[in-house]
Design a protein around this nucleic acid. Structure first.
Lengths: 147, 147
DNA sequence: TCGCAACCAGGAATGATTATTAGTTAAATA
DNA sequence: TATTTAACTAATAATCATTCCTGGTTGCGA
């Protein structure tokens, strides 16, 4: 059961000059299939189930193209691989420092922070991202061992 | 000319049980000497000038001890090594995506964000950090090539 | 001074990611 | 439609930051 490819995605590919290949489509579908925020490795494992010939490098390359044309978003917590996400709305994610799981913090936004920052620095701001880390309810009490 | 070691630092070492060795002291002084936010490698290079026998691994270990006992702070931007800082006050840093230089954004704080986050997630929040990235005035116009 | 635990140098190992290269596919053109 | 050309991909090597390991010090407490 192949997922319906949204019109906007095809459009973004057309405008960017990149081609929507089967591998890139597969990466996108893997991202849709996984509820959380998968790492490149996670995506790779999912994609490999359907097509065992794809290489991890191809997944990385596809993810970078998808991010470049604005179809997906990536976030990075230290001591953990980069996570990818189809949700392009501004939203806050928190990562459990024990199990590594990422989930959303609802009802909290960056507010005026972004414009405050732009006003107070001579830099040309290209990205602001709030990294939040904690211990999820399931891991409380348990001992370390995240990845 | 050795830098005067603050009382608070010695105290923190005593309370933690770690010993304030010459290597750890050297790391601390390197951090004081460098104005910006040096990476482990930067610190290593500085420390090596005085004592060429220190190993990079030792610098990493010292930095992690210093952070653990609350003497220094670390920040991490993706695609760039972790940066270390003696300034323990809450402050915003911005990193140039071209040259990698880190500098402070004055007059902007996280405000009530932190408590908003705690209110809206079942996680036990251990850390929140605003990652800001941009292009510094000196790099504007120039082509990529950061590290 | 002896013994033990913390420390350290040096170097190997790891994990995530990027680069390289040669072969494949797909789009553009004739 | 056949040909040319550029984009893409698989496989694998290389890189970079960081951690781990090992055997040798050091320094403090008994």
């Amino acid at each position: 059961m192949s997922v319906v490819m949204e019109k906007g995605i095809k459009e973004k590919f057309r405008m960017s000059g990149y081609t929507l290949t089967s591998q890139r489509r597969a990466v996108l579908e893997a991202l849709k299939a996984s509820k959380g925020h998968p790492s490149a490795e996670d995506v790779y494992l999912l994609v490999k189930k359907k097509n065992p010939r794809v290489a991890l490098g191809t997944v990385y390359q596809a993810l970078s193209v998808l991010e470049e044309i604005g179809v997906i978003d990536s976030k990075h917590w230290s001591e953990s691989p980069t996570r990818y996400d189809l949700n392009l709305e501004e939203h806050l994610d928190i990562r459990c420092r024990r199990c590594g799981q990422v989930s959303e913090v609802p009802n909290v936004g960056l507010g005026d922070l972004e414009s405050d920052i732009r006003r107070n620095t001579p830099y040309e701001v290209t990205r602001t991202m709030l990294v939040v880390e904690g211990v999820c309810p399931g891991c409380r009490g348990k001992e370390p061992a995240a990845r």
